[in-house]
Write a protein that binds this DNA or RNA. Structure first.
Lengths: 341, 341
DNA sequence: GTGAAAGCGCTAACAG
DNA sequence: CTGTTAGCGCTTTCAC
């Protein structure tokens, strides 16, 4: 059977194309009897309006993009991104939006993707993961008229719309918890250099330490890369400095680091206590029991979609900055109960 | 500035709209001098054709969908899916396609998504992850005219186009490896009930055991759920049966199971040997060293896109079934070297 | 409350 | 090799 059009439906019901369009788009000014008949025919025939035609006429596609730049290589290595993606997907489902995913693999991909997202008609707006300071994309989008919101604080603000958690405060919180528990040599495993999250979480650590009158010992600060393996190696480098507690800038690195501690024959939290960041599902597993800073990852994605929708509808002015709350979730890796005895 | 149209470019260059369209679409029949001038103006002005108009006129959107049904709840829990998604994304990048991701969260979402994917004009075709036997979607798509390929063998074939690895043979291979190494009590941790992968891998295990003249001992078969925690628990249930080797239907479950073994004070592979399935990045980490069946996950995604493209171009007849090769990757968890001594 | 008519911006015959 | 001419299928004034 040939594809049905609005015109076909109209003919079958005996009304005009406009009327059918009105009932599909939920206009109130339609006689309820006619509306019913139109609906019936639509269901009987299994008619679905053509998306391209609709986009062209209405200048709205109902599609938003999610772009993860090349610098986010940990897409399938850190559960954070899949979960974020899921949050965005839920946000889309909720708002009857379709999600287009742009995963950039290499420089070549990148060049091909720029034009695709700026092609009008395809996307109503786009969500971009903040990356490294030299990410040209954010800059690029700033100049384009595509409504966009940045996931995470971008390096250069410039009236950007973004959503984030207060990484500095959250990391400070995590560190303070360790300080309060009486640990003497508190170390930190940072994320990849050159990303805003890494900088902010490190700053939070430093802040809390200084506020507590502790000196910053560089041998207690090691760089990870947001992977489990990276956490393992970072911990191995850290071990000689004899830390008695570690604040890890991500849960997945904490998991790797804890493994390194165990492989070294030490105990958690007895010998070394841990606090992570993210609260990925694994953190609450029976085996890990990681005390961590919970980010509302799913909510993050959902809110981002809503923020974007707001910008699409009402314009990008004034700039919007949404901050989500984090929360210290106490499990066993920090050794809380040890102190309570 | 108002949005540029093809007409504007044509006017600036002093040619007709069609000519500009031709150079954009790479038609050969254009005077090279004119082509150059058109290109120049396009670059100067930063013109991008409107995707909706183009889709409407050409009946092709350049967008394909990737649908992960509700039954795939392990999206952000098993690295397999993110990696598959990445493979699909690469395949899209390579072929100048845009990827739309449909992650179904709940029944409600599901109902909203059906019409979205069957709306013509939006999608040129769709990739669907095979799920449980009662997944209505695959059935639904079979009747629709949307070109589609199923990722993994579907329960009901019916002329479906799909791509898969030979799970039975691969699992048998893994099991045979363990048999050859002389293990006496070889167990298996299966995936979630009711999925084709689970069934096939279990069948491979049974097959290899029977072929080797081993009896199938039900106490050596436990069900997992494709999560790390599930693997851990499955192993705990398995321990009393005193297995000396385990074939796990996925790497992530193997990781959990191995942890359970260590927590029980046993050694790998000394007390219990392991072979996994997938070869996720973690499997080759310095800590895990998991012997496993490597699936070409990225390739899987890329090939799926190419297959879909073929169907879009040449029609769904005849049905295409693509099988990808797997490979046994030997690391340390199987205890190979123990035997070689 | 309903219909007619004018596009939305592009592709694709078809002439020339 | 290039221009003219129809649409693609829908939304949206604007009359009535």
């Amino acid at each position: 059977m040939a594809e049905l059009t609005l015109e076909d439906i109209a003919k079958k019901v005996g009304v005009s194309r406009s009327t059918v369009s009105r009932v599909i788009n939920g206009s109130l000014n339609v006689n309820s009897e006619i509306r019913r008949r139109v609906m019936d025919v639509i269901h009987e025939t299994g008619y679905h309006p053509n998306a391209a035609a609709r986009s062209l006429a209405s200048q709205r596609s109902g599609v938003i993009g999610l772009m993860l730049p090349r610098s986010v290589s940990s897409f399938f290595t850190d559960p954070f991104f899949p979960q974020l993606t899921q949050g965005v997907a839920y946000g889309c489902n909720k708002n009857d939006l379709t999600l287009s995913l742009y995963l950039v693999g290499n420089k070549e991909d990148e060049e091909k993707i720029y034009p695709r997202i700026s092609r009008r008609g395809l996307l109503d707006g786009i969500l971009i993961q903040a990356g490294q300071p030299d990410d040209r994309l954010i800059d690029y989008l700033d100049h384009s008229r595509v409504p966009n919101v940045i996931l995470g604080r971008p390096f250069v603000l410039n009236g950007a719309n973004y959503i984030d958690v207060d990484n500095i405060e959250a990391a400070a919180n995590a560190t303070r918890h360790l300080i309060k528990l009486g640990y003497e040599r508190i170390a930190t495993i940072t994320g990849t250099q050159n990303s805003a999250v890494t900088l902010d979480r490190l700053e939070g650590y430093t802040l809390a330490m200084k506020q507590a009158g502790r000196e910053i010992d560089d041998s207690l600060i090691v760089e990870g890369d947001f992977t489990e393996g990276g956490g393992y190696e970072a911990m191995q480098r850290l071990l000689p400095a004899r830390p008695d507690a570690v604040f890890s800038a991500s849960d997945i690195m904490a998991v790797g680091a804890m493994r390194a501690v165990q492989d070294a024959g030490l105990e958690i939290p007895g010998d070394i206590a841990f606090v992570g960041f993210d609260d990925i599902p694994m953190a609450s597993s029976a085996v890990i029991k990681l005390t961590t800073i919970r980010q509302p990852i799913l909510q993050f994605g959902i809110k981002a979609v809503e923020l974007l929708l707001d910008i699409i509808t009402n314009g990008k002015q004034p700039a919007r900055r949404v901050m989500l709350e984090t929360e210290l979730v106490i499990r066993e890796s920090c050794g809380c109960h040890k102190v309570n005895i």
